[in-house]
Design a protein around this nucleic acid. Structure first.
Lengths: 145, 145
DNA sequence: ATCTTGTCTTAGACTTAGTCTAAGCTAGGA
DNA sequence: TCCTAGCTTAGACTAAGTCTAAGACAAGAT
């Protein structure tokens, strides 16, 4: 039983077969998929599922606050079913691999009052960038050659 | 004289009239424009300027490291001519207004070694989100009504 | 001064990601 | 059972960005 489905049901949200497949696809993986990748995988389980339903459903889950929408590469949005606990993201600039990470401090505490420009700041997320072990090796070999 | 143009020239980059107009448009404003907005404004000064040249030029300036590419709203990329000094971004969730801000510490220092998954982490940026003074007022009035 | 070569720019076709629309389907209440 | 509201569908549409092929231009060689 999917935990995300349980959380969604609490919002009096109708769990249709389509929505269940989408939620389970989203939660079943530990990388963050794009809408298109979710469609691709969900269609394996429910071939008549439409693109519009996937997009609608993802947007609704984001609106309910149970899924996070990430826009980190400027190409397409990615969806993160862990809307629960505070975490940040580490991205490989070589291959786009993305990991969830936890920082030792809350960045909101590090924004001085005079840098807030009168905003009420509610949350902050950190995007770390670098090279994953594989891309680092590849880069080193490339430099040698 | 544009400072960005000076920086670009240091890379032995040919400063054509088109590139100059684009660089000056980018630097002349203190908000972060999308490529389409830059095109729109640059065309006022050089009507025959093409969309492809704007996109090419922006991508080249990013590759040279003199301009930052921001993907914060998931719709379109925005360009920030201040690639120089470390800064982060504060975004209004109501109207999309974006400000540059400075934090009191470098977030790279807050990522413990065992959370780095073997990556070489080179940089980190923080996205702060909240409501700007105007949207906060509007929200309060909306709640009253 | 002209030629040559490589770079830059252009218009427009194309691609990708996502939204919208109109019609049909389905589940649950009167 | 019928009604209604909400859900799903196919496919058209839009927005952002990339690609391509051809022409324009600039700088060095002759």
């Amino acid at each position: 039983m999917s935990d995300l489905v349980t959380r969604l049901r609490r919002h009096n949200w109708r769990i249709t077969p389509q929505r269940r497949v989408i939620a389970e696809t989203l939660e079943g993986s530990h990388v963050h998929f794009t809408a298109e990748q979710i469609l691709e995988r969900a269609v394996e389980r429910m071939p008549e599922l439409s693109r519009a339903t996937v997009y609608n459903t993802l947007n609704e889950m984001v609106a309910l606050g149970e899924v996070l929408e990430l826009t980190l590469d400027g190409r397409s949005k990615r969806y993160d079913p862990n809307a629960d606990h505070e975490h940040h993201h580490l991205i490989c600039e070589g291959c786009g691999l993305m990991k969830d990470v936890h920082a030792m401090a809350d960045p909101v505490d590090w924004l001085p009052g005079d840098e807030r420009h009168g905003f009420s700041v509610t949350r902050a997320s950190i995007t770390y960038r670098g090279l994953c072990p594989e891309c680092r090796t590849a880069a080193a070999e490339g430099a040698q050659a």
